[in-house]
Amino acid sequence: METLWVKEMMLKVEDLCIKIHDRNSSETLVKDVDLEMNRGDILGIVGESGSGKTMSALAIAGLLSRHDMEKSGKIIFEGINLLECERKVLRKLQGYEISMIFQEPLNSLNPIIKVGKQVEESLLIHTTIEKSERKERAIQALRDVELDNPEAVYNSYPHELSGGMRQRAMIAAAMISQPRLLIADEPTTALDVTIQAQIVELLKKINRERGTAILFISHDLSLVNTLCERVLVMKDGLVVESGNCSDIFNNPREEYTKHLIAAIPKNPFDNRDR
């Protein structure tokens, strides 16, 4: 289905390099990464661990502010270069226009704060909405991510929820302020296979209904194939291949991509021709 949203450039990354400086050595984790996303796009980044995909995602989310990391290039989001803008400007975008969900929903949630309070935190930071309305909006957000009994979830602590529920709550927290870009860093890796599929479906629905662009990071090429239109394949900090998802899946040009495809376990019950 073609979206009604105007295809407009939202994110443009040019020559992104990330270097980490130790006491005496320096290592380049990400080299000359370029990517573009329009509003409402779903872009996948695939690669093994250590390929620099998570680093790139964290850089885009503005979460690599550590001073032992050196970043160069440009990350332009809606006309603002995130690498050079003031922290104040960046903070205004974080959690409001750009949200992120992570691999381990349990560790990514604060263990001693009720889930609901964490879901509504972005509203607390970025808006002046009243407390009671924030709660309403949080419960609505929890309902939107298809959690049964959202009031109960609102009042639970993270350890009281299952892994799938926690990741849904994380998505609710990320989506509560209707961001334009949702960065999902291996959001299903820590989950059971059946729950994986549900979370991917949920992300699809969010993209379809709200037009939120999704940057989906995964080591699982088949998962990326079910969700994304376009994909970047990364290895050792470099983008080795990029393009339309099904093209790459069917005709990989790079040896590395072929390995990634070969590494997908064959599902004996899956009769569909890929």
């Binding site: 979460l63 990514s108 604060n110 972005s122 930071i125 994380m170």
Partner: peptide
């Protein structure tokens, strides 16, 4: 250094918050 701290930053919290 815990991951929830990164989440908190990703929501646009100031360092103090």
């Amino acid at each position: 250094q815990k991951e929830y701290v990164r989440t908190a930053y990703s929501r646009g919290n100031r360092t103090k918050a």
